[in-house]
Amino acid sequence: MDNINFDNYMHLEFLNKSENESFARATVGAFVAQLDPTVSAITEIKTAVSEAVTNAVIYAYESKIDYIYISCGIVGRDVYINVEDKGIGIPDIEQALEPAYTTKPESERAGMGFTIMQSFMDELTVESKTGVGTIVKMMKSIEE
């Protein structure tokens, strides 16, 4: 993660199995709970994490089994969450961020993942390199 002096920090790594989608969002939600956020704020963070992790499960490694990494840091009331994979990468990030864009419509993907992450978090940036992997960086300020 970026060079920030976090008050608290945690790191997770797990296989790209769809069973781990609920594990990932529940764990991040439990970590963020120390800031005593509203139920609505926690749900928004869990939803954003679920979207990012689901993207990594579905798109990053194609049929290969490999790791997804989550880093989560807290500084003051700000929560920083990175969801990272070392998969095939996103060739055109701008296109991937467009609402309803998906490369897997046959799997009933709505293409709304990034749009929901952007709506529920205060900041979202996507860094990706073809053949190297993708990092989704999100930040949300938790109100007092």
């Binding site: 969002r25 939803t47 979207e51 689901t54 009933e108 993907r109 709505a110 709304m112 993942g113």
Partner: peptide, 12 residues
């Protein structure tokens, strides 16, 4: 809990 996978499921 529901994320956008639910949207895809409903649209389907």
């Amino acid at each position: 809990f529901m994320d956008s996978s639910g949207i895809g499921m409903i649209l389907g």
